[in-house]
């Protein structure tokens, strides 16, 4: 099994006619993902290598029955695109867009929470989700992931998500689902959502969690691991050497005072029973060891 998506998921790509949308949409399709439609306002009626394009998400849903959306549009259009997908009753929305204003994200998150409570948003500013061998929605290079489980991956950083998949593949360990939740201040899906889903998924036997400095989501995840996760968790936190008070790249990675430091997060996770490792390679090695003993 996989979480959130599986081989029956049908995907509408918002922004399919754009450079990134086209490249990654077609690459997802080549991977085996059921890409059923594209949406670009004003380009309805066209097609991208046989994938029909519609003006609105509602039209795309009516014509194809798509039940997931892959949002690949520029930052200034992203909030509108996500809300349009939710209004068209899409239950699962993946937004890869980087650089969305924080206030737009906060408004979208709270609008979804109050008006579309059953819609799940993954991202923004995330690599997407891949269930190896079944479906790949987003920008992850599918060939770096080994299908079949038994490991679930959840990561806040895009490139560390790839690194985790790669390390497991080197060790010959497969993945049920790999979820990149993104590093922005207000992610639609958080660590706890994914840990809960992996705990429920019978095929996922162990979990890798890749976190980073800033915020308190890793600490919340530690509380949840202690109370509700019985499967082994390997945790890695990036940013041990990051100087306090500096914004390291994206909005998520900023440390102020004592909160959100790598050390505090690693201690919280270790205290919750997670296997805390020092680099991505160790995460792969530790997980291979755990999988061998299952």
């Amino acid at each position: 099994m996989s979480i959130f998506v599986d081989e029956s998921t049908t995907v509408i790509v918002q922004g399919l006619t754009g450079g990134q949308g086209r490249f990654h949409g077609l690459r997802n399709k080549a991977y085996g993902t059921k890409i059923v439609a594209g949406v670009t306002p004003g380009k309805g009626g066209q097609d991208v290598e046989g994938i029909p394009v519609f003006d609105t998400v509602a039209e795309a849903v009516a014509a194809t029955g798509g039940n997931a959306s892959f949002v690949s549009v520029p930052p200034k259009m992203a909030a509108g695109a996500i809300l349009e997908a939710a209004a068209a009753s899409i239950p699962f929305i993946v937004c890869i867009t980087e650089g969305i204003p924080a206030h737009d994200e906060a408004r979208v998150y709270n609008t979804l929470a109050s008006q579309y409570p059953t819609t799940r948003l993954l991202g923004p500013n995330c690599p997407g989700i891949i269930s190896p061998g079944k479906t790949n929605i987003g920008i992850t290079a599918g060939e770096i992931a080994l299908p079949g489980g038994p490991v679930g991956i959840v990561s806040r950083s895009g490139t560390l998500t790839y690194q985790a998949l790669y390390e497991l593949k080197q060790m010959g360990v497969g993945v049920t689902t790999c979820v990149g939740i993104g590093g922005d201040p207000v992610p639609g899906t958080n660590f706890v959502d994914c840990l809960a889903a992996f705990q429920e998924d019978p095929e996922t036997k162990a979990i890798i969690m890749m976190g980073e400095i800033g915020g308190a989501e890793e600490e919340k995840a530690a509380d949840f691991i202690r109370s509700s996760v019985t499967k082994p968790v390997v945790a890695y936190i990036a940013g041990v050497t990051a100087p306090p008070g500096k914004k390291m790249g994206h909005a998520g990675a900023i440390v102020s005072g004592n909160t959100g430091t790598a050390k505090a997060k690693m201690e919280a996770l270790a205290a919750a029973g997670a296997h805390v490792v020092n680099n991505p390679t160790e995460a792969g090695e530790k997980m291979a060891e755990i999988v061998k003993g299952l």
């Binding site: 990561s155 950083s157 895009g158 690194q163 590093g183 980073e212 990036a238 390291m248 994206h250 998520g252």
Partner: peptide, 14 residues
């Protein structure tokens, strides 16, 4: 990516 960049700094340190 910020995560990989931070991780790279960490690994160089390690």
């Amino acid at each position: 990516g910020a995560g990989l960049a931070m991780s790279t700094c960490d690994v160089v340190n390690q």
